[in-house]
Design a binder for these strands. Sequence first.
DNA 1: CGTTAATTTTACCGGGCGGTCAAATCGAAG
DNA 2: CTTCGATTTGACCGCCCGGTAAAATTAACG
Lengths: 207, 207
Amino acid sequence: MTKSPPRTRIQVRNRAAILEAALEVFAARGFRGATLDRIAQAAGLSKPNLLYYFRSKEALHLAILEDLLELWLAPLREMDAEGEPREQILGYVRRKLEMSRDHPRESRLFANEILQGAPRARPVLEGELKALVDEKAAVIAAWSESGRIGPVDPYHLIFSIWALTQHYADFEVQVRAIMGKTNPYPGAEAWLDHLFGAALGSPHKSI
Amino acid sequence: MTKSPPRTRIQVRNRAAILEAALEVFAARGFRGATLDRIAQAAGLSKPNLLYYFRSKEALHLAILEDLLELWLAPLREMDAEGEPREQILGYVRRKLEMSRDHPRESRLFANEILQGAPRARPVLEGELKALVDEKAAVIAAWSESGRIGPVDPYHLIFSIWALTQHYADFEVQVRAIMGKTNPYPGAEAWLDHLFGAALGSPHKSI
DNA sequence: CGTTAATTTTACCGGGCGGTCAAATCGAAG
DNA sequence: CTTCGATTTGACCGCCCGGTAAAATTAACG
């Protein structure tokens, strides 16, 4: 699939420039809306030159998607079954929100892919992603059953975390249309803390 | 913009068929990914015939968007300042979730538009939508200040409702990849009731 | 400097897509 | 049946886009 590890300095530089440019363009216009000309221009190359580094538009998109999925799943991977449940879940929420704030283009690229029916990412969703979610859902379920957090549906809890955190990146124009120039993230962090905190059962209440 | 009210029976039938087909195709493939040929075929017409009813791809998309936005804002409009706060908010959540369940294509078409930076819908977002949200946010803020619901940020509350309910339509393939063939909506309704119920402050707790 | 491989450019192709046009066909009313 | 507007079709255009071929240029190294 991907070209074997880049050797020369030029390859490293140009591949990085292309991936950066492609992320920008794919995120902003979707797979079909993006053109190789535009990506090449943004990377400071000619189109055939770009195609010297990536066989095809498809291959380029795939390369980005692979990098992206690792980044995307990291915050959930960090959730620790041995940790304090509430802290672990709220920590996950915070990391995921930071991800949206610091990597909105990645979020939108991913959203685009899913919206179109995940033509390229579906195998990963049904394989790696499902396995990870099943594992962490079991952890949350155990926490819930042992009474360390209130009764929650772990799957819908995880979906909620995804939906809420990614919303601020994916629907940014809508958020900005309503909130103006105000930076929504400080407020969002406090709000999500409140929202999920309450849903997990107040620690004060449980005493 | 839009052609003056259709007169003949044929016009009514064909316009409806086109809008239905276009909704399907635009939702599944985005604006650029959709082709007039495909839409025309889905509507049972030839491409030039389709262009007899709608001047351009742009005009067709705009016609759909206009219809859509009315449908989309209806649930929020129904939220009644005179009603019981908790019931009003949870009712809004339920109506919005039903909207996603019954109109997933509309949801995805809208998501596509926003993701691409709302090139066609931005005026509505900054005008009508913002006005409506500001109005309802003020209502919620008043409820909150009078202690009838717990302290909440009305804007983030509304964003949360959007994000969560639409997630089940927009990210359907992801949800299905993880949950399999299970229908997520019954569980989602109970979960969202729990989540927002807790965030608004338990009515039991407030006594 | 010379040689060889890596990189970049120029020119091009075939297909698809939005849109147009003029001719043909259809349908309602007298 | 005729007429006239509404509707439909087929043929076509120009542009853009992904991708290719081959020549030209550049870097690496002895």
